[in-house]
Computed example of a mutant assay.
Amino acid sequence: MFRAILLEESDGKVSAQITELDEAELPEQEVTVAVEYSTLNYKDGMVLNGLGRLVREYPHVPGVDFAGTVEASSDPAFKPGDRVVLTGWRVGEQHWGGYAEKARVKADWLVPLPEGLTTKRAMAIGTAGFTAMLAVMALEKHGVTPEKGEVLVTGAAGGVGSVAIAVLHAAGYRVAASTGRAETHDYLKGLGATTIIARDEIATPSGRPLDKERWAGCIDSVGGSTLACVLPQIAYRGSVASVGLAGGNKLETTVIPFLLRGVSLLGIDSVMSPPEERKEAWTRLARDLPMEKLDAMIHDATLEDLPALANDILEGQVRGRVVVDVRG
């Protein structure tokens, strides 16, 4: 038997409870993992509140991410005792996830935990940090280098933004952090932000097809009118890595920045990212992310804390990274 958060649906309403499940109830997959830590993403907040039809079948164990130790494996790629991390692959949505002391998943979904990275720190990174690294890698591949100028990070105090700032700063970039929360300014500067940009300053497009060139690149987790405002401000041959839609999923803009400045809009998908890209990103995170900055982002939590935290993250009230010890 093991503890888990179990979601059930009745009359269109989703409820969550902590219960004990039998290992025989786990999905029939190749690798059984003793989960140690999980985390809280915006998508987890939606799932715990029954929003967005992300979960189609109940009862369901949520939790998009987890890290732990292999207990049993029918796939030769893993053996008992291996330390592993999982993000994406619709785990926690279509498949049972990490808000439990045990999980059973496909071997292809797992990444060996890089040397020097603990399971707790892996979940401080989680999907948010993994997505941030994919965004940094995409900017690099499209020629955004430190000498090109400042890189803007929107939604900076969230999980993606926090890790992005720390990684970019460590790589030698000057980073502008956009936030609407004045109380996070010292936190963002501690991560490495050199400039703080008020959210309202980039919330509304000017209406002009091109504005003054301000940013060599951008990692944007807001979308909507913020992304429409930022695109005309990107420097010649700069790029924007789009990772989220906290501000809306519609983009009303012109093609002029793409045609006259050669700006690139790069879509970042972390859910179905292929295995080799995953391994590269996790290796980079273990090597390039300053662990003291990562530790400064962590807020510890337990399974019991998650229902309240799910509401907080949907309301934009979670700073940094929530790390959930599923064992108690």
Rank of each mutant, 00 (worst) to 15 (best):
I298K: 04
G149V: 05
T283C: 07
A157F: 09
R199S: 02
I202E: 02
M46D: 02
K250H: 10
L191G: 00
C229H: 04
P62S: 13
H60I: 14
E201I: 02
P275T: 06
A122K: 05
E277S: 10
Q29R: 11
K120C: 13
D295P: 07
G247H: 04
K13M: 12
R278K: 15
I165S: 11
P274M: 10
V243E: 01
I268N: 02
G12E: 05
N311R: 11
V167E: 03
L245P: 03
E150R: 08
W215M: 09
Y187P: 05
E71Y: 00
L306A: 09
A135N: 01
R319P: 04
R121L: 15
E280M: 12
F78R: 01
T283F: 14
L168I: 14
L86Y: 05
V175S: 01
A157L: 13
A132E: 02
V175E: 03
D305S: 10
R83V: 03
A72L: 09
R321N: 01
A16F: 06
M1T: 10
G172R: 04
L289A: 13
A24G: 04
V55D: 06
E201R: 01
G45H: 06
V144F: 02
S206A: 11
T87K: 03
I196C: 05
E57A: 15
V323C: 14
E277F: 09
L260F: 01
T87A: 14
G63E: 05
H169I: 06
P62D: 11
L48Q: 02
Q233G: 00
Y58L: 08
Q233A: 15
V163Y: 06
M123R: 03
H95N: 03
L251K: 04
A176Q: 01
M272L: 15
I18E: 10
V55N: 03
K120I: 13
P114R: 01
E8Q: 10
T254K: 07
G238Q: 02
L86H: 04
M297T: 15
E28H: 08
E315N: 06
L265V: 10
D200R: 14
R208D: 01
D269A: 13
G98A: 15
F66A: 02
V160D: 01
G207A: 13
Y173L: 11
L285C: 13
K13S: 09
V175F: 12
A241F: 05
S270C: 14
D82L: 02
E304R: 09
A67E: 05
A72N: 00
E276R: 15
D220G: 03
S38L: 09
V322Q: 01
A310F: 07
G224N: 07
T204A: 14
E93T: 06
T254W: 04
A203T: 09
Q317V: 07
L188A: 05
N249L: 07
E36K: 15
T118W: 10
E304F: 07
A177Y: 00
M133F: 03
E9P: 00
S273K: 10
A286V: 12
A241D: 00
D75Q: 02
A170K: 05
A77I: 13
A301S: 08
T118A: 11
V271P: 03
C218L: 12
L54T: 00
V35F: 08
A198Q: 14
A128R: 08
G328Q: 11
S206Y: 07
D300Y: 08
G207E: 04
R261I: 12
L210I: 07
G248F: 11
D65Q: 10
T32M: 06
G68M: 12
L251A: 06
Q17I: 08
G129H: 02
Q317S: 13
A246S: 14
